[in-house]
């Protein structure tokens, strides 16, 4: 069974609820993590939520010299093993969509892990601009 984000930018109001949901889902040591998703404005009052696309041929996996990024075959997410990560920022530089990020609070690299199968961002999106849907 495959799931995929469905984005409908015309519904996005730029309310940034997805950001909050992501940050709090990734709370560590009582501090929210850096959000892995951002609604970005492309015109006046027009937004589109941008997050990791879990590319099939992912540049982040390729660029990691230490094998810290691996695909979770169950969820399809490319997950970062922080125990193996050296913070060399190769993935940050390599991702063509700019979706591997540096979390300065926790001093680590972060990227979308699909919250283990049910992304909080999609759950909390009030306008359904972002949905996580089963596809045929």
């Amino acid at each position: 069974m495959m799931f995929r984000f469905e984005v409908n930018p015309s519904l996005c109001t730029g309310c940034r609820t997805c950001e909050l949901a992501c940050a709090f889902t990734h709370t560590k040591n009582q501090k929210p993590g850096r959000s892995r998703i951002y609604p970005i404005g492309y015109a006046k009052d027009e937004y589109v939520p941008v997050t990791c696309l879990q590319c099939d041929e992912a540049a982040c996996i390729k660029s990691c010299m230490f094998d810290a990024l691996r695909r979770n075959e169950e969820t399809g997410a490319i997950e970062l093993n922080l125990e193996r990560c050296v913070k060399c920022e190769a993935c940050v530089a390599a991702c063509p969509f700019g979706c591997a990020l540096i979390d300065n609070v926790h001093e680590e690299i972060v990227k979308c892990d699909l919250c283990g199968g049910s992304p909080a961002c999609a759950q909390f999106c009030p306008t359904k601009a972002l949905e996580y849907k089963k596809i045929a």
Partner: peptide, 17 residues
């Protein structure tokens, strides 16, 4: 990474437009 995300938004936005 910031500019790459902005670029993604721009491209998707242009599709919507």
């Amino acid at each position: 990474d910031d500019c790459k995300r902005a670029e993604v938004a721009r491209k998707m936005g242009s599709l919507v437009t």
